[in-house]
Nucleic acid binder design. Structure first.
Lengths: 134, 134
DNA sequence: CATAAAATGATAACTGTTATCATATTGACA
DNA sequence: TGTCAATATGATAACAGTTATCATTTTATG
């Protein structure tokens, strides 16, 4: 009896994420947001649903620093070069969003020459950003 | 009075890492290794020295999964395309080491067109490996 | 040696995340 | 609509990795 249940909490969580495309949220931030609306959503529920969204490809999860919370971002199931990717500056900590066609070449190369099907959106490029290099 | 101290523990930790180039170690694994040699090195000391090695550029640190320990790898301070980089398979979890000149192009592109100085070695490419795609 | 600076290691503390489980909610079907 | 089994929720305990604390030991140097 595989049934798709939909609860108020699931709806509200997904709605919140969809309304903030390109933004990163920690579980704690999400919990706070709903608390400010006088809506309590249990911590476990938030993690459970985020995990489910990630499995469904609607949301992506990033681990950036030890001890920091994981970040979650709505991506709506899109993939490939159309999706944006991230540059993480090791100096200032900034997470930069970027769209760039140049990656298509590397994507093709990794697939054809290395047999590796690259998930561009999940990959975080580490380095030093333009502002910090000056 | 800035002095560089060198202790037995520091020497042994670095020697161990250097003797296993290209290998990834968690703090716990390192502790176990020395325990098998009947050498006790405190957990705090291991983390402290690993952190120091990372700052010195001798060792690189990777966060791969929530809840998993961080992995540390000796890289000896080398950088750029000569250093290997990593492909992480999201299906089987395998971490693949790779050397590839193709990345030079992307490195140049990121620097010239985006002003981003890419640290290739620290970047982990997520995707699906050749074995899991079949 | 003597001394001050710094490192060590046992362990407590902290944080993010997951597991547990009693209760509440959901969807399907009569 | 009412019943019921499947599932979700949320409070909280449990857990794991890492960091902080601090008395003790080791180090480098005079």
């Amino acid at each position: 009896m595989k049934t798709t249940y939909r609860t108020k909490q699931q709806d509200e969580l997904m709605a919140y994420l969809q309304q903030h495309p390109g933004a990163h949220h920690t579980a704690a931030q999400i919990k706070e947001y709903f608390a400010r609306q006088d809506k309590n959503i249990g911590t476990a529920t938030i993690y459970r649903q985020l995990e489910r969204f990630v499995e469904d490809g609607k949301v992506r999860k990033y681990l950036l620093e030890t001890g920091d919370s994981a970040c979650y971002e709505y991506v709506g199931g899109q993939e490939g070069c159309t999706a944006h990717f991230h540059l993480k500056c090791e100096k200032c900590g900034r997470l930069i969003h970027m769209n760039c066609e140049e990656l298509k070449r590397l994507e093709t190369h990794l697939l054809e020459d290395h047999g590796f099907e690259w998930t561009i959106g999940k990959t975080v490029f580490y380095g030093v950003c333009d502002k910090c290099r000056k």
